[in-house]
Structure formats: structure tokens, C-alpha cells
Design a protein around this nucleic acid. Structure first.
Lengths: 203, 203
DNA sequence: TTTACCATGTAAAATGTTACATGATTAG
DNA sequence: CTAATCATGTAACATTTTACATGGTAAA
């Protein structure tokens, strides 16, 4: 969790500024299991980390620019290393597509077209991202370590699975509607009745 | 985003209490792309949704218990449906394992065993979750709709990929260390030097 | 009778985002 | 010369979690 370790980690790659960290996260973090980080959390955190002695400002080589370049201190390297040693928390996946699909059967069951649209957008985005990762992994500028590289390979495998699945699902949705998968307590039937009743009484 | 639509969605399945919503989310939501929801956000939100007229308290069948059962109003059904119509936001994946792997090469490069431990834990968790989902999808109580069922099928495919990948990665890590994948600017070499320097100066 | 579970709620703390303010430098 | 990008920072707002307070019911 926490921006703190993202900042320490990014600085472990190379000393940079708050602005530089933002770009790194924007660029690499997107598909690497980090969320986003805003300036509003980066700058105060950098200040705090400096006060705690985990990072320090180093001389900026970029003349003229009023930029603060930070690097890890010994304490900072230790903090980062200690954090890596702890078992990672379970992944937090918040995917509105899946949330929406969970509710589709009760709330929008006779509209398949909109869901197909959503899936097509996702498919395009995933293909784009895969291309982006391929380019990125074969450019002559970026550093990819052994372990970090494994992570990226996996990310690519996952994207390929996603793309396949989006395609398969669109095909399924174009076939005629089938009956609910499993409904021992007739919840779907009841939900439809509740909905209808709500509209009768509501208007 | 937002607890709001999770509450509306869960209530679309079946009228229930704040406590009941929490259980549903704990139970199903875990692997279905929702985050967690705490009581501290459920109860205030339920109150708010009731004030806004999106949900209403219905008679509790459970005699004796002081429990408030909520159901959607017509307005609530519309709100849920409108939300489903909008293209889902991009997935937010926050996986500390991948974050940690991104930083492993600079901060803990000569410790492969700890990472193997992390991966083994993940593998076990994924296998457990897969078993849980299989049980759950074949019990005689839970309702699974057509669309929601597709989501679960995909989730299972993803878990299988995860398991395979954890295994493959552990195998890779047991082999001797290879050189960094790609390092045109010698960042890894420089990082090692910066780290060493920080410790020399720091102590 | 005691433990586990069912059940609701609030206040404080943590965390983070958005929007704004400000200004320098570089590329076209 | 003007747009894009580099660059830092704060204050207000939003969201959510944690911790606490409270109490009922069911099963062992």
C-alpha cells in the first residue's frame, strides 16, 4: 500500500524529481500493479521522507531548472529492503467491468449490445497496451531487470488472456440468450418481480 | 468506483441488511473485481441512499432481530441501470507482489529465497481460491446469472494462469542468476554503486 | 454460560485526489 | 512567440478505514 514505498522504489532505480517519479509511475506503473499517484501526494510525501531521513536531495545536474533530485539514504535502502521482505498483501483488483457484469443479470438483462460495446473498448485498450509493452521492452533506453522482467512477461500473458476472453465473450453474447446458469432460490425471477413492482409503485 | 453502486448492485440481487451486504461482498466480491467494503462506509452510505430515495427499508421477516432490510426503489433501479450503461473505468490493479518485483533487482537482488516464499504463498492462495470457486459454483444455494457466470469463468481462467505462472517463476528463480535483461544506461550497475556509497557514508 | 455470530452506528484518523497558483524552459 | 512540457507546492475536498461503543440471538 502507500505511496511511500512506490517513491522509495522508483528512487532506487535512479535519483529523480517529484515530477520524474510521476512520469515513471504513469509510464511503467500502469500495467505493473500499481495504482496512480498524484502530485498532491508525491510532494508532501517526499518532504516527509526527507524529514525522516529516508531520502536526501542531491545535486541537480540539470542546470537552470529549479528541480530537486532525491536519492535514497542508507536508511531508505534498508526501509525498502525490509518492505520487500514482508509477504505482499493480496492483490486488490477493482474492475468495474466485472462489477457491472455481476449486476447485469438483474439490472440490465435484456440489453446485450451495451455490454458488447464495453467489451470491445476493453479489447482495443488491451491490444494497445500489449503493443506498448512490446515496444517498451525492446527499446534501447529502458532498464529491465531479471525479476522485473519476469513480472512484465506475466503481464503480457495476462493481457493476451484478457483479449482472448473479451473476444470469446462477445461471441457468446451474440448468440441467443440462454437461461440463468444456476438459480435454486429463483432470485432472478424474484428480482424481476421486485423491479416491476418498484416501477408500478414508484410512478 | 464508489461504494454506492456496489450497494445498489448487491441489493438488486436480493433485499438485505448492511451486515448482509458486507457478507456478500466478503464472499463473492473478493475475486470479482471489487475491493472491500467496511461497515464504516456501508452504514452511512445506506442512510444517504435512503435519503436520496434510491433505496427504502422494507419489512424485516426476521422476527426478533433489530435489522433493517433495504430494497431498491424505482429510482434506485434506474440509477443502477444508468451506471451499467456507462463504459467501465479501466481496471485498477494494485498488486504488491508486482510492485515488489519491480524493485527487487535494485534493492534485494541477491536474495531469491524470500521471493520464492512470497510466490509459494500466492500459489497456495490461488489454488485455495480456485477450489472455493468450484465449490461455490456447484452448490445448490447460490444464484449465478448468465452474464455473471461468464465473469466467474474468466476469473477461474485467470487463477489458473496465475498458478502456472507462479510455478514457472519459482523454477526460474531456482536456476542460477542471469544477468539483467536489458540495461542500456547501466542503471543496475549504478544503483549498486549508489547503494554501496549510501551505506559507506550513512554509518 | 460463554463463545460465535448477527447487527447498527459514530468519530477520528488516514489517505488521497482535485483544483488552483506559480513560474521556467524548450521546441516548433 | 506560443504551446508544450518541466517543475513545485498548497488547500479544500472526498473517500474510506480503524477503532470504538453497543447490544441481541443461537449454539455448544
Amino acid at each position: 500500500m502507500s505511496v511511500k514505498h512506490i517513491l522509495l522504489g522508483v528512487l532506487s532505480w535512479e535519483p529523480t524529481s517529484g515530477y520524474g517519479i510521476k512520469s515513471e509511475v504513469e509510464f511503467k506503473g500502469r500495467e505493473l500493479g500499481w495504482g496512480r499517484v498524484s502530485f498532491g501526494s508525491i510532494y508532501p510525501q517526499l518532504k516527509k521522507l526527507q524529514e525522516e531521513g529516508l531520502i536526501q536531495a542531491v545535486d541537480s545536474e540539470k542546470e537552470g531548472r529549479k528541480t530537486k533530485i532525491y536519492d535514497l539514504t542508507a536508511k531508505g535502502w534498508n526501509e525498502l529492503s525490509d518492505w520487500l521482505e514482508k509477504p505482499p498483501a493480496s492483490p486488490e483488483i477493482r474492475d468495474e467491468l466485472f462489477m457491472k457484469m455481476s449486476f447485469w443479470d438483474t439490472a440490465r438483462s435484456n440489453d446485450r449490445e451495451t455490454l458488447i460495446d464495453h467489451l470491445e473498448i476493453r479489447r482495443k485498450e488491451a491490444i494497445e497496451m500489449l503493443g506498448f509493452m512490446d515496444d517498451w521492452m525492446s527499446n534501447d533506453y529502458s532498464a529491465i531487470g531479471e525479476i522485473g522482467g519476469f513480472g512484465m512477461d506475466y503481464e503480457k500473458a495476462r493481457l493476451k488472456l484478457d483479449i482472448q476472453w473479451y473476444e470469446r465473450l462477445v461471441n457468446e453474447l451474440r448468440k441467443p440468450t440462454s437461461v440463468p446458469h444456476q438459480d435454486p432460490r429463483e432470485l432472478f425471477k424474484k428480482a424481476a418481480a421486485r423491479k416491476e413492482k418498484a416501477f408500478r409503485e414508484g410512478e
